[in-house]
Each structure stands twice: as C-alpha cells, then as structure tokens.
Computed example of a mutant assay.
Amino acid sequence: MSFNLQSSKKLFIFLGKSLFSLLEAMIFALLPKPRKNVAGEIVLITGAGSGLGRLLALQFARLGSVLVLWDINKEGNEETCKMAREAGATRVHAYTCDCSQKEGVYRVADQVKKEVGDVSILINNAGIVTGKKFLDCPDELMEKSFDVNFKAHLWTYKAFLPAMIANDHGHLVCISSSAGLSGVNGLADYCASKFAAFGFAESVFVETFVQKQKGIKTTIVCPFFIKTGMFEGCTTGFLPLKTGLLIADYLGILHAMDGFVDQKKKL
C-alpha cells in the first residue's frame, strides 16, 4: 500500500510539473521572454569538438560571443574552432582538456583566465555513454561516466564561479539529459551520472538564490537522445508512442540559445 501511495504521489508530481511546463510554454509563445545579448560574453563550452558542443559553438559564434572551446579531441576541437571563425566569430580559443581529470581542468582553467579573461557563460556539455547493461559494464567505464558527466561540473564550477560572483555577472548551463530524469534500460551509469549533474546544478541554483547572488543565472537542459553519434542505433519505445533520436540541427536548445533567456531558469 505504501509503495502504491508513493508511486501515485510521484505520478501526480510528474503530471503537475508537465502541466506547468506546458502552460509556461504556451504563455511564453504568446509573450516572448526578453532575449539576452551574449555578444562579447566569454563562453566556455566543454565537449566542443563534436556533436551538440560544436552546434552550440557555431550558434554562439553567430551571436558574437568570445568562444573558449574545450575537448579531449584536439583535432575535432580545432575543426570546431575553424568552423566558428567561418560562422562569424572574431575571437575563438581552443584548448585540449580531459574534463575527467580534476588537475587538468584546473590547469587549463588557469590558462584560460590568463589568456582570455573571466568566463561569463559556462556550458558543461561534455559527456560519454558506455551503452552497456549494469553487470556487463566494467568498473573503470562506470567511473569514467561519473568523471566526465558529473564530476567535471564540480571542477569547472569551482574554477569559474568565484569570478562570476565577484563580478556579479555569469551564467551556468548544465547539459543534463532526459536520462537524468528517468531511468533507462542499459544506461544505468549514464542515468546516474546525469541525475547527479541535474541535482548538483539545481542545488547551485538554490544556493545562488538563497545567497541573493542575482547576477548569477542558471539553466538546466534535459534534451532527449540526440543523433550526434553517442546514441547511434538507439531507439526508444513508449506505449502508445514510439520515438527515435532528435535531429541535432533542429534541437530546441539551439533556438533557446538564439534567444538566451536573461533570468534564472530551471527546466
């Protein structure tokens, strides 16, 4: 009986949040939110060498931002750098960084501060997926999932948030996942790491609110599985609906960044 009550409570909470989000979307479809001017903002994107990170970099390039691109893949990151310049960016800086290594994150962060300046928009986008069932997944791969998908957020926030607070100006963006909201078969470690990233980012949002740090904005994004290579071959079946992968070029996140919202936002 207790289990049924808890399940019913969770269902009603989910439906309530869904209804609220739907109403919010309808309201802002009629009354557009004010857009945030990101021209000249120093935007750091982790995992910029491919996929969603590259698409975000190109969008911010078109909006006139100063780009700081991080990726473990030097070749892919430099390709994104080249594409960003072609898209209109006048200042682009590419750094090779393994976000799973705390010391490496701090080292490259110090380099960015000296060579570029204080990061004002931080987008934690880097992510990996093992795609193995829990008992088939090697321990080291599960640890890597947490290092990249979650722990990297801790180190980048520690590196760049103090300057944002000092300047009373900054925006923290967490690219979580729909898998950070609900468990998925065969993605136990990935879901857990994305749940952790979501919880951490939400906690930081609450901290900034309680401490009245009004100049610090936060955004949590939970996209569905994206057709960028990470989830190649993945399909999902929901009754009565069956859905495939989102086409990255048409992701709502890109349109959201085009009208980057100038307010605290929790999705």
Results as ranks from 00 to 15, higher is better:
Glu140Gly: 02
Glu41Ser: 10
Ser120Thr: 15
Thr208Met: 15
Asp189His: 12
Asn77Gln: 05
Ile253Thr: 06
Val105His: 10
Leu251Met: 11
Thr219Ala: 12
Ile226Cys: 10
Ser120Ala: 06
His255Phe: 01
Val68Glu: 05
Gly40Trp: 14
Phe150Asn: 12
Leu135Val: 14
Trp155Ser: 07
Ser18Asp: 09
Cys81His: 06
Lys17Trp: 02
Ile216Val: 14
Val119Tyr: 03
Cys174Ser: 15
Lys264Ser: 14
Ile45Ser: 03
Asn167Cys: 11
Gly252Glu: 10
Lys82Gln: 13
Lys265Pro: 00
Lys74Thr: 08
Gly88Phe: 00
Glu207Phe: 03
Leu161Trp: 04
Val204Pro: 03
Phe205His: 15
Ile175Asn: 03
Gly237Trp: 10
Glu115Lys: 13
Arg85Asp: 03
Cys222Trp: 05
Ser120Lys: 13
Gly127Glu: 05
Val204Glu: 08
Met142His: 00
Thr46Trp: 02
Val221Thr: 08
Lys266Ser: 15
Thr46Asp: 03
Gly40Val: 14
Gly53Cys: 06
Leu5Gly: 10
Cys81Asp: 08
Pro240Trp: 07
Glu24Asn: 12
Ile253Asp: 00
Ser120Ile: 07
Cys137Asn: 14
Met230Tyr: 05
Gly215Lys: 06
Lys17Thr: 09
Gly170Gln: 05
Lys102Met: 07
Gly47Cys: 01
Arg54Asn: 13
Phe134Ile: 07
Ala89Pro: 09
Leu5Asp: 09
Phe134Lys: 04
Pro138Ala: 09
Ile165Val: 12
Ala89Thr: 07
Tyr95Asn: 12
Leu245Gly: 14
Leu23Gln: 02
Arg54Val: 02
Asn167Phe: 04
Met1Arg: 07
Met164Trp: 04
Ile128Gln: 02
Ala48Cys: 06
Ala84Ser: 15
Asn4Leu: 12
Ser193Asn: 01
Ala192Val: 06
Thr130Pro: 01
Asn37Glu: 11
Gly229Val: 12
Asn185Ile: 13
Gly180Ser: 08
Thr46Lys: 01
Gly131His: 09
Leu22Gly: 09
Cys99Pro: 01
Leu55Cys: 05
Leu181Lys: 15
Ala196Ser: 13
Ala39Arg: 15
Lys214Ile: 12
Ser18Gly: 06
His255Glu: 13
Asn4Tyr: 13
Gln111Gly: 04
Lys33Asn: 11
Val116His: 10
Glu78Phe: 02
